[in-house]
Design a protein around this nucleic acid. Structure first.
Lengths: 160, 160
DNA sequence: CTTTGTTATATATCAAGTTATGGTCTTTGG
DNA sequence: CCAAAGACCATAACTTGATATATAACAAAG
C-alpha cells in the first residue's frame, strides 16, 4: 500500500501535516475520554491561553492562538455554555468582549495540568524522541511510530 | 504577542501541525488560483493518487491517502461533477466502485505537473532548506519563515 | 454634531476531515 | 445451500478550520 502523500514529498506537505495533526488530536481525545473530561481536545488551547495570559478579548485570543476570529467566537460560546469561561464587556471599549475562565474553568485547568497534560506531553515527547535530520524524514518516522503504537497507548504505558 | 501553541510545546503538537498544514494549503491555493485552475488544493492528492496508481476502488484510495472512506466518497462525487474523474462498477465485485481519471482529468494532471507542481515543490523545498535539529525547532523556523514570506510569494519569486 | 472611516465581534456559509450507521453484495460455515 | 458474518460504499450528523459580510462602537474631520 503506497502512501501517496509521503511519495509526493514537498508537494503535499500541507496535507500531510494536517493528517498527522488530526491523528494526534484524535488520539489525544481518546486519552481525555478515558479520563472523564468532557470537552474536545481542540478546546484546550483556548483554555490554556486564558490560563497563561489571563482574561483576554476575542481578537487577542485569535492572534495568540493563530486562528481566525470567528473560530474563537464559536469556541467561546461553546465553552461559555459549558460554564468554563465567561464573557464580560470591556469598561473602556464597549466593542470588546473580555473572555475569562470561570471558577469551574480554573478548576478544570488545574485538574488537567495535574492529571492529563503531563501524560500527553510525555507521550508526545516519547513519540518525538531521537528524531533528527530533514523535516520530511522526521515526519515519516513520526508516522511510522504512530502506526506502530498510537499515542493513547503510549500515554497508557507511561501511566504504568 | 505570545504564540500559545508554540509555548505549549509537545502538548499541542497536533493543533500546531494542523495549523501549519492549513497555512500551507491556503497559500498553495493562492498559487493555484493565480494560475486559473479551478479546484481546491486539497483535491490534488486524490488526483495524484489516481495518476500514480491507476484506477482504484474507493476504499483503496482512502487507504493510500490516509483519510477515512467517506472523505474519498465526497471528493470523488465533487470531482466527478467537475468531469475530472469517473466511476464505474467493478466487474468481479459489484460492491466496488472503481474511480479513474477522465481525459479531462488526465489533461489537468499533465498541465499541473508541467506548470504548477514544480513551482509549489520548489517553494516548499526552499521553505524547508537547511532545517535541522529537533522537530519542534524545525516547525518554529518554518512558521517564522512562512510569516516572513508566505509560500505563494516564494512561488512567485521562483518563477522570476 | 454629523459623517466617514476603522476596529471588534457576531453570524452565515463553505470546506474537508471525522465517526456512526445502514444497505448491498460476497464469502463462509454448518 | 442457505443463513450469518464480513466487506464496501453512501449518507447523515458533527467538528473545526476558513472567508465574507453585517452590526455596533469608537475616532477623527469638517
Amino acid at each position: 500500500m503506497e502512501d501517496v502523500l509521503r511519495s509526493l514529498g514537498f508537494l503535499c506537505l500541507g496535507s500531510r501535516l494536517k493528517r498527522i495533526g488530526e491523528q494526534l488530536q484524535a488520539d489525544t481525545q481518546r486519552v481525555l475520554d478515558r479520563l472523564d473530561v468532557r470537552i474536545q481536545s481542540s478546546q484546550y488551547p483556548l483554555l490554556a491561553a486564558l490560563d497563561r495570559l489571563g482574561p483576554q478579548p476575542v481578537g487577542e485570543l485569535a492572534r495568540s492562538l493563530g486562528i481566525a476570529q470567528p473560530g474563537v467566537t464559536r469556541s467561546v460560546s461553546l465553552l461559555a455554555e459549558l460554564g468554563l469561561v465567561e464573557v464580560s464587556p470591556s469598561n473602556d471599549d464597549q466593542r470588546r468582549r473580555i473572555v475569562s475562565l470561570t471558577a469551574s474553568g480554573q478548576h478544570l485547568i488545574k485538574a488537567a495540568k495535574r492529571d492529563v497534560w503531563p501524560r500527553i506531553e510525555n507521550a508526545v515527547a516519547e513519540l518525538c524522541v531521537d528524531l533528527s535530520g530533514p523535516l520530511l524524514d522526521q515526519l515519516g518516522v513520526v508516522e511510522d511510530r504512530l502506526a506502530a503504537v498510537p499515542l493513547d497507548r503510549r500515554a497508557e504505558k507511561a501511566l504504568a
